[in-house]
Amino acid sequence: MSVKQISVFLENKSGRLAAVARLLASRGINIRALSIADTSDFGILRLIVDRPEEAYRALKEEGFTVSLTDVLAVAVPDRPGGLAPALEALSEANLNIEYLYAFVARHADQALVLLKVDDRERAVKVLEEAGFKVPSPEEIYSL
């Protein structure tokens, strides 16, 4: 149940992020979610898009330093206290989260959380056993 995430290494100089967005736009690729982690020197842009393989190839061809990473998506209720039980379940199962970011789906009262964990398969099991829905990659790409 892994969702393909695109990671792009970006130097902190103006116009780099715009260049990524412009390239994806020109290929008609839609960004579903994004997050940026940065230091003073560089940043990592993480993207969930509707056509990840195609976006990956396009970025690589344009010379971007890019990689595809498997992440996990989990749906949590979009209300106070929605996220905490999911994280607690993972923590109790001793699963480490490297990073996560979230977005709120348009049509439902749920938020989607994207997680990079060390043992994805076990995390899926833990979350499902705790009563959370783990959407399929197709559901995420087509949101």
């Binding site: 995430q5 990671s7 290494f9 560089f42 990592i44 993480r46 330093t65 990473t69 490297e98 990073y99």
Partner: peptide, 14 residues
């Protein structure tokens, strides 16, 4: 420069 194949997407690796 990072090698193109050297980027794993992980902050820790960088």
């Amino acid at each position: 420069e990072l090698a193109q194949e050297g980027f794993t997407g992980s902050y820790e690796d960088l």
